[in-house]
Amino acid sequence: MKHARNDGPDLAFRLGRRMVAAVADDMSTVQRVGVGVVAALVAVSPFGAWNEVEAQADPLTAGTPVEVGPFEVTIEKAATADELGYLVPEPGNHMLAVVANVTNTGEVPVNSGKLGEAIPAPESVGIIPEVPLEDLGADSDDGAGTGTTPDVADPSADPSASPSPSEPEKPELPSASIVNIKDGTSPIILNPGLTYRVALIWEQSDKFSGDVIPLRIMELTWIEESAASLDNEYWLPLDEVAFTGQIPIEPAKPAADAEAGQQ
């Protein structure tokens, strides 16, 4: 006697079993174990089974060279100034510069933007965030004059102020403006074998009163053949901190800075 049956999942199960049986029935036990191990390895691959354990960032100190991607970077100091050449802050802000000696140790030129990606803006020290595109047309008479809230842990903030129940999205900090201290120009290309003394410059709120900044240098990895695009052979910044440390801020030296900009 035949019974009506639901063919959906049962059919899939029977087909799967038949396929497995077709392959496995004629295998020896050793072969079955081998196939099982390979299948298990393949099955866990998409879930990060082979990813390296996240490495701890190495310490970053002023005066000590570190290697990241094609660069050897020696952070010299951090300094503040009312303005740096053509970079003039909004009222209530100043400019923060991280001075570094950077050598391209590779064999091909690297765009200076890659250096900016490797050394992102320090967080929680009042760096003025990028203005969102939708705010560019709006009036900006509030705050520090830019219409944006500085990324700062303000020690003088009202402690009684209750935090917003829905925390606003963290504003994106800008990439550094990179200036060649030797001549005050903005280098686009960093050629191999040359050491450039550069300043990575951000606009910072006057509300920040600390004497050190936390600086991070991100990992760069070489892409020989890109799987995601037609571009090959380039350095790709990773979301992984390679070096981190506290860099002391030196007092501003307007005369010296101005002289450096004139050279």
């Binding site: 064999e107 091909v108 030129p109 120009t185 280098p187 686009i188 290309i189 050629n191 191999p192 074998g193």
Partner: peptide
């Protein structure tokens, strides 16, 4: 001679 490559500046 070492095979290093250098690109021009637009300054």
């Amino acid at each position: 001679r070492q095979g290093r490559r250098f690109w021009p500046t637009d300054l």
